[in-house]
Amino acid sequence: MIDLNKLNKKIDKLFESETSDSLTKWLLNKRFGNISILLGNGKFVSMKSQKTPLFIPKKKVNFNQKDDNSSNTPPINRLAA
């Protein structure tokens, strides 16, 4: 017969003894093999994407704006000309 109280205490004790590093290491190894050798120890970090000012064009592009070559001629014919 399973002693549920004993098992409950054993599980409580287990988690009390586990550190953030030991649990993360175990989980990483479980999911990706022995990857902690490459990555080192640490927590999972949820990354937020952020816009960098370096690549944001100051002037907004207006795709509806007609260019200087605009005419009734289809673009393909204009190129040929």
């Binding site: 599980i11 988690f15 586990e18 550190t19 649990l23 993360t24 989980l27 999972f44 970090v45 949820s46």
Partner: peptide, 13 residues
């Protein structure tokens, strides 16, 4: 549920 809470708290996932 106990295990899931510990994992989230200690590993962030």
């Amino acid at each position: 549920e106990k295990a899931a809470k510990y994992f989230v708290k200690k590993t962030g996932t």
